[in-house]
Computed example of a mutant assay.
Amino acid sequence: MTVRILVATAVEPEAAAVRAGLAGGGVEVAAVGVGPAAAAAGTARLLATAEAAGTPYGAVLSAGVGGAFPGRAAVGGLVLATRSVAADLGAESPAGFLPLDQLGFGDPVGRVDPALLAGLRAALPTAVTGAVLTLSTVTGTETTAQALATRFPDAAAEAMEGYGVATAAGQAGLPFAELRTISNLIGPRDRSAWRLDAALAALTAAAPALITGTLALATARP
């Protein structure tokens, strides 16, 4: 049986970078939109359409460019999420930020499949592992960067879509993982310091490992 893997990126340049590194079948890449809402809706639509057509996916990977916490990952490097956290989904309070679970409204963490993560780590041995934060507003000040680093000491990177893709995958009962290549360090916003070309090239270089890291897991599952 042919196993299909969905790689969901935010924008088409990321999708094109992944496709450029793919030499075999079984992996489909789609740009599903920027931000957690668009990512969840776009991924859910693709999963439902495939299921209805009798060609379901076997695993879902959120992939694309992100920013790294200084000292935790390097520009041009890779980060594999140990969990995808909706870091700004909750409420402010005089005592500090209250995440979704403390409000009693659900789980702010998108769960990464342990076996899928293990397969990807084996295929991408240079990747840093840690939490990847999903934010609707990209960090652009030192104050926010330090606050996030304190709240999430295991965080290696931030992006805008992982939790949304994880939500769609979880509701479909599919294993999920997240890969980020790093274009910049998190802190005061300095667009001139971003290295998008290096991050996109890293996506292309990592693409063959996505096949070996995800297809082996999905093929082994019933």
Rank of each mutant, 00 (worst) to 15 (best):
D154W: 00
A31Q: 07
A155G: 07
L6R: 03
G25K: 07
R221N: 00
A193C: 04
D101R: 14
A131R: 09
R151M: 08
T143R: 15
A206L: 07
G33R: 04
A193T: 09
G162F: 03
G58I: 06
A39W: 04
L174H: 06
A38K: 13
G187W: 10
L117I: 10
F176E: 05
A73M: 10
A37S: 04
D113R: 02
M1Y: 00
G130T: 08
L89N: 10
A156Y: 12
P188H: 10
L210R: 12
A53G: 13
L116W: 14
P13K: 01
L61M: 07
V109W: 04
V138A: 15
G77Y: 10
T181Y: 02
A52V: 13
Y57Q: 13
Y57R: 12
L124Y: 04
V34K: 00
L98R: 14
G119P: 11
E28H: 15
L47V: 13
T129K: 03
G90Q: 11
Y163W: 15
G110I: 11
A145Q: 13
A40Q: 13
L100E: 03
A30C: 10
L103W: 13
G164T: 09
T55R: 15
A68E: 03
A20C: 02
A199K: 02
G110Y: 14
V60S: 06
A149K: 04
R83Y: 07
